[in-house]
Simulated scan of single mutants.
Amino acid sequence: MITTITTTIPANMIDDFMIRAGLAGLAIGLATGPLGCFVVWRRMAYFGDAVAHAAILGVALALLAEIHVMIGIVFVAIMVGLAVLQLSGRTLAADAILGVLAHSALAFGLVAVSLIKGPRLNLDAYLFGDILTIQPTEVWAVWAGAAAVIALLLWRWRGLLTTTMNPDLALASGLNPKVENWVLTLCLALVVAVSIKIIGALLIAALLVIPAAAARHFARTPENMALCAAGIAATSVLIGLWASFQLDVPSGPSIVCASAVIFVLLGLAGRIMRT
């Protein structure tokens, strides 16, 4: 006699982890949308990649030092970002500096992880994200980090915008472009730190760039573009999360795929409206 045993997952358990994932994803979308606008305006997509790749080195150093992973990620991401700002234009072009730091930080991070004693760390969650396993305390941490990024952007919005559009005008207005660059680097580091569990270090730059690029099709002002980008990023996260759960596929790539589809659809819609 063959007995078939079936197991079911309680509906309330599904609801709990989906709600946690949705709340965390919503926070990341609201933060990456406006921040991504500055990445697009400044053509800093590769800069975001460098900071995100440095997150793996931050994870390894945090585990070796036995401190919280987010502390290590923020520290290393800020150091890499500031190194790019200091070195660019001195001996090598900015893109060359970014390439060296991005790939070097990732490589050193992978080597450092392999040196950690004990059970081997599974890097998949950090490289590609694993939003469905996020815990309640992590949701609070994500919202705190996202709120800090949004607060920084609101506080320095005029200075960041003026420096982005015309650095000379910013200097004439009494602004210090270096300070604005440091604020932007801090925002990128915070976003990378709180979103690495959700979207993954290899895909964070995509969530920064694609929603902002999609919002460009309809936005008429910088503020309008930032709001549209936040809405598109949040929608992409929620759609990608739903697709990940329904199709049993990785959550990080699903979120990026959703944002790419929205980008194409909005681009086609914008072209139709202009004809």
Rank of each mutant, 00 (worst) to 15 (best):
T8D: 13
T8N: 13
P10Q: 02
N12V: 14
D15L: 12
D16G: 03
F17M: 09
R20Y: 14
A21K: 07
V40C: 06
W41S: 04
R42S: 08
R42G: 06
A45V: 07
Y46A: 00
F47W: 06
D49E: 13
A54M: 00
A55R: 03
L57Q: 05
A60N: 01
A60C: 05
L61M: 14
L63G: 03
L64F: 08
A65E: 06
A65V: 10
V69T: 13
M70E: 14
M70I: 12
G72H: 09
I73M: 05
I73W: 03
I73C: 07
V74H: 06
V74I: 15
A77Y: 05
M79D: 01
L82S: 01
L87C: 04
G89Q: 01
L92F: 15
A93W: 04
L101H: 02
L101Y: 02
L101R: 01
S104K: 04
A107P: 13
V113K: 03
S114W: 08
L115G: 00
R120M: 10
R120H: 11
Y126H: 05
G129P: 03
L132T: 14
P136V: 08
W140I: 12
W143I: 10
W143Q: 08
A147Y: 03
A151T: 14
L153I: 12
L154G: 08
W157Q: 08
L161W: 07
P167L: 11
A172F: 06
A172G: 13
G174W: 10
G174Q: 08
E180Q: 14
T185R: 01
L186H: 05
L190H: 09
V192K: 00
V192H: 01
I196R: 05
I198P: 00
L202R: 05
I204A: 03
L207N: 09
L208M: 09
I210E: 06
A214N: 07
R216F: 10
A219C: 10
R220Q: 15
E223Y: 14
A226R: 06
A229P: 12
A230S: 14
S236H: 11
V237R: 00
I239V: 15
L241N: 08
S244D: 10
Q246Y: 15
P250M: 13
S251C: 08
A258I: 02
I262V: 11
I262L: 15
V264Y: 06
V264H: 10
L265P: 01
I272K: 13
M273H: 13
R274G: 07
R274A: 15
R274E: 15
T275P: 03
